[in-house]
Amino acid sequence: MLGYKELPFEIMHPGEFYYELLVSGRLKIDPAKKIKEPVTLQDPCNIIRRAGAAEKFRYIVRQTCENFIEMYPNREHNFCCNAGGGLAVLAQWLSHKARGNRVKVEQIMATGAKIVITPCHNCNTGLKDIIGYWKFPVKLMFLDELLVNTMHIPEELLPEEG
């Protein structure tokens, strides 16, 4: 693996790439399509705590949502979704896992958000599990869904009628 110590390419989380697209103006957000419901952001451990993409994700969310409420604690101090470390696949342990993440439920409920943005597949699974177990009313959304719903689509790209 030493041959790959200096990579000829950059490795990115899509969130970081979306940030580049938004900042450089290649992708534009339609102000009329912005999400009006209160949203909050789940910080994935590896991308935030270890790779430090916290502010980039916040930039995307602030661009696309009108009402963004931070969880507390947040950024690199955020709690894990309880599906990291391979625990996402352990279906037999579902209630054990969900009991082990009451903190996250309390954290989300305290924000009063209706949508939780999860920029990670593991986080999405983890939050889905605790929503099913603790029965609390929030919707989950990925960053790609957020962008597809709010981005400005130029007219020449719209499909023809018929």
Partner: peptide, 20 residues
């Protein structure tokens, strides 16, 4: 990881974007 890197290098990509 080696497979992913080798494929990216083979197609001379500038950026390697993984899934969310």
């Amino acid at each position: 990881v080696k497979g992913l890197y080798e494929n990216a290098a083979k197609f001379r990509a500038k950026k390697l974007v993984l899934t969310e």
